[in-house]
Design a protein around this nucleic acid. Sequence first.
DNA 1: CAAACGGTTCGACGGCGGTCGAAGTGTTCC
DNA 2: GGAACACTTCGACCGCCGTCGAACCGTTTG
Lengths: 197, 197
Amino acid sequence: MLAEPSRAAMVLALMDGRSRNAKKLALDAGVTPQTASAHLKKLLRSRILVCEGRGRSKYFSLAGAEVALAVEALSEIGRGPLPAAARELRFARCCYDHLAGQLGVTVTEQLFRPGNTILEDLKIRIPDTSRRPLFRCCTDWTERRPHVAGAVGAALLRHFKTEGWLATVRESRKLVVTPRGRELFVRVLGVEETIFR
Amino acid sequence: MLAEPSRAAMVLALMDGRSRNAKKLALDAGVTPQTASAHLKKLLRSRILVCEGRGRSKYFSLAGAEVALAVEALSEIGRGPLPAAARELRFARCCYDHLAGQLGVTVTEQLFRPGNTILEDLKIRIPDTSRRPLFRCCTDWTERRPHVAGAVGAALLRHFKTEGWLATVRESRKLVVTPRGRELFVRVLGVEETIFR
DNA sequence: CAAACGGTTCGACGGCGGTCGAAGTGTTCC
DNA sequence: GGAACACTTCGACCGCCGTCGAACCGTTTG
């Protein structure tokens, strides 16, 4: 649906969230009204657009936030340099302001063990100043499993850095586990020794 | 790129984050190796996949988080019922075998409060028989925030149903909070009274 | 070295689908 | 009522691109 140039042009034209009529969209896409009509019909059927018929004109707009999110997500692909160093990032890296990679998902799983007292043991304090959700999760793209984000995720990474468990690498998202960190991850968080290779 | 069925099949096959060789991907997509080769070439050029040549085999995997995000975002489009019955499902429903909706994300947030003892209080036992991940999360499509899934999510919903907190509605994913459940959600899980309207 | 195998290139075929002209329906406005 | 207009349907055309057979290259294995 979004792959076809004319349809893509129409959807992109609607990315501002406003609505337009069919003729305007035909112009945006550089096709005749008949062609546009066929495309718009398909876009409606596949729930990408919705329309509201006002009089003899029909006004089209994006069907919802999911559409806008998907279009934005697609436009992110292929930017940036090739990840020759991908492997290095796989074990531990930061994802915005929280921990990701094998270590990230492992820590997250530990947090979910019934009876764990990790957040208290580390004396993690969550600043409740913001409207930020306490907890979010990203699906880790290397692990395809969730790691903790949100306020809790940020607080954890902050702790690991200030307490010298993890060190950052300049100009990179890579994180390095210090010897001290390695010992503490195992002893305090119950992480398997083996994941450190 | 992602619109073509064979390529989509290959990319979906790689959505678990692991890597596969060209022949395996050809099989997944149901095409011959020549055809797969052509597709893989294009997917590499457009930075959707990366490959690592080990010996005479080449191992392909997703190029990065953006790709996984985009694919997931695309899969969200057009899901869900039309707005008429949507409202009813919004508050509480089951998502496969776990709890979703406003109540689902709220419970999930409670689980992440530092110092909570919810899983022990409820005497939740996680069967560790399976290879099933202890914890997964779905992004709730109505709430746009994560709710707990995986073994923990399933155990929780099972508990809520067997203990009479929630009642199922036949032929529907809808879940109804019983008066008993309502009281317990507030007292035991610390859910805000107000979300029950 | 020969055989097997993974991956690639080339060329030919065929179908799906985007395109537009022409014509049809319904609405608005004078 | 009639003209202008927004949108749709139909039909025919045509080009792009996915497909596979055959042949080719390079690595691995015995």
